[in-house]
Amino acid sequence: MNDISASAMTGEKDEPAATETKMTAEPRPERRRKVRRKSNGVHRHSCRHYTRTIYILAASLAVLFLSLLIVLIRLSMYAKEVHDLTVLQHKQEQELETLRPKVASLEAEIAELVKGRLPGLKPLEFDKVIPIDKQYVRNIIFTLIGTEEDRSYEYKLTLKNNNLTAVHPIVRVIFFDHLGIQMGHSTIGVDEDNVPTLDVLERGEVRSYTKVVSLPDGRQPRYFKIEVDLPEYQKPKE
């Protein structure tokens, strides 16, 4: 009785255990399939994301390559232009070197002709004391003032009276171009109406006069000439 009861009891206990084992074992394939499906879905999503990234990188590299190609083409064109300009500049410099002696020779010939036609002309040089020593005029200094668009010429004239009496000198500075054509003039000792001023130079006195001259059309003088005169009342009577 005890054995049967024990066996029965044992049988009753074994059946639920087997049933429980069976119930726990049955869902495993289903869970595996679900896990496999989920894993496959994640893998496919990862592959799509990776493929999209590759396409984006490939497109970016293609754009970068095209940009570099365009830059290289432009640099090549620029290098060719620079080379052509360098060759042209070198050619022009050679031509200038060939023409420079001829130009200098022609300028010297023109200068000689101008001086021969107009005695007393002096080359106009800036920022330099040019000795004159003509009657009452000792020297003159020219200075270029103004801007490129509006040039003017300032001169400083130094006079000295070596006479025994006071004088009233009238000094005219005349400007000429490179061909000896008169461009303008400036006068000291008379006003705009050609009336003598009261600037009398005493005996032994040294005095400086400064004036600014604007020449027409912005032309630059190459020569100048100084003429000295006296008022009628100081001129010696014949």
Results as ranks from 00 to 15, higher is better:
residue 90 H to S: 15
residue 171 V to R: 07
residue 192 E to M: 07
residue 217 D to N: 12
residue 181 I to W: 09
residue 190 V to L: 05
residue 4 I to H: 08
residue 47 C to M: 11
residue 185 H to M: 07
residue 142 F to S: 03
residue 181 I to T: 10
residue 136 Y to M: 11
residue 228 V to I: 08
residue 223 Y to V: 07
residue 203 R to P: 02
residue 119 P to W: 04
residue 97 E to F: 02
residue 116 G to F: 02
residue 168 H to F: 03
residue 72 L to T: 06
residue 181 I to C: 05
residue 12 E to D: 06
residue 25 A to H: 12
residue 20 E to I: 06
residue 68 L to A: 13
residue 227 E to G: 09
residue 145 I to A: 05
residue 119 P to H: 06
residue 60 S to R: 12
residue 48 R to G: 08
residue 63 V to W: 08
residue 184 G to Q: 04
residue 11 G to R: 14
residue 217 D to L: 11
residue 50 Y to D: 00
residue 51 T to W: 00
residue 1 M to G: 13
residue 198 L to N: 15
residue 101 P to A: 10
residue 230 L to P: 03
residue 80 K to F: 00
residue 234 Q to I: 01
residue 200 V to L: 08
residue 32 R to Y: 11
residue 99 L to M: 08
residue 171 V to E: 06
residue 228 V to F: 07
residue 9 M to G: 13
residue 35 V to Q: 14
residue 140 I to W: 00
residue 209 Y to R: 01
residue 86 T to L: 08
residue 125 E to Q: 15
residue 182 Q to D: 07
residue 189 G to P: 03
residue 197 T to P: 04
residue 31 R to L: 13
residue 84 D to H: 08
residue 171 V to N: 04
residue 206 V to E: 15
residue 23 M to H: 14
residue 180 G to S: 05
residue 216 P to I: 02
residue 76 S to D: 14
residue 158 T to N: 10
residue 195 V to H: 10
residue 63 V to H: 07
residue 218 G to R: 05
residue 101 P to Q: 09
residue 126 F to P: 03
residue 21 T to S: 13
residue 64 L to V: 09
residue 120 G to H: 05
residue 152 S to H: 10
